[in-house]
């Protein structure tokens, strides 16, 4: 079957002498793997259009037996040039692509994830570096929610006591959300300020565009690090290696 869809290139692998496999997140079919024949040749028509972190329009043949389709035509919509020019933005985009590639199932259409990824990449192009970390946290929260792994933050997971009534907030990675001081007893939790919980709630439900007007304090940003460092690896059972390099770059003030 021949199909046409728009897609974002997440990663690529070498195949044989001159070909490569690209993994894309597409608008109509979710995450798909495609063979791009001859894409590693310098003069290949696929060479410039199948680079990672590119927004493309594809025509492909669906394989009947394998999970590997064949790319027939590929038109470039955007290469996100501002991301490619900046080391920190490129590593951030790579991190978003890694999350999408590792946490989404193959051939599972999810338009909301496609829109979230596309919007996040286009904002990453425009945003200054101080908004970048907030954008990444917003992506993580929205992405986890769409996959059904989002942390429960409005009330205590065990007794149901509302966030507003809590004096101290405990975050349980294993439980997947908020616990009050009583329920957190004898459990492995991290104390997080109420402000940070509210920031997480805001980032989960607000529009991505609104981040440009949002100011998040250093303390909250530090506390929100629990998402990529502990929460995502625990719930996805995947090691997100791009985060380590990203953290190193941010720490060095890139």
């Amino acid at each position: 079957m021949l199909y046409k869809t728009r897609a974002i290139v997440l990663r690529d692998y070498e195949l044989a002498e001159q070909d490569k496999i690209i993994e894309v997140f597409s608008e109509k079919y979710g995450r798909v793997k495609l063979v791009a024949k001859g894409a590693r040749r310098l003069k290949s028509r696929f060479a410039p259009t199948t680079q990672i972190i590119s927004y493309i329009d594809i025509l492909a043949y669906q394989s009947r037996k394998l999970d590997l389709d064949t790319l027939s035509e590929c038109q470039l919509i955007s290469l996100f040039p501002e991301i490619k020019k900046d080391l920190l933005k490129m590593v951030s985009a790579g991190y978003l692509a890694e999350l999408t590639a590792k946490l989404t199932p193959l051939r599972d259409r999810n338009l909301a994830i496609f829109v979230l990824l596309l919007k996040s990449l286009s904002l990453l192009e425009k945003f200054s570096k101080d908004k970048l970390i907030t954008l990444l946290r917003a992506f993580e929260l929205k992405f986890l929610q769409l996959l059904g792994y989002g942390p429960a933050l409005r009330k205590c997971l065990d007794c149901g006591k509302k966030l507003e009534a809590l004096k101290t907030c405990h975050f349980s990675v294993e439980g997947g959300g908020l616990l009050c001081a009583v329920c957190a007893k004898d459990k492995k939790t991290t104390v997080i300020s109420k402000g940070s919980i509210k920031t997480m709630l805001y980032l989960s439900h607000s529009k991505l565009d609104d981040i440009k007007n949002l100011w998040v304090g250093r303390n909250s940003l530090r506390e929100l690090e629990i998402l990529p460092s502990l929460y995502i690896p625990y719930h996805s059972e995947q090691l997100i290696s791009g985060y380590k390099f990203l953290k190193q770059l941010i720490g060095n003030g890139a």
Binding site: L10, R11, I52, M90, V91, A93, G94, Y95, A97, E98, A101, L239, S241, G242, K244, F245, L246, Q248
Partner: peptide, 10 residues
């Protein structure tokens, strides 16, 4: 090469 997507750091 450094590849954030494939987890290859500097």
């Amino acid at each position: 090469v450094i590849s954030p997507v494939k987890g290859i750091g500097p």
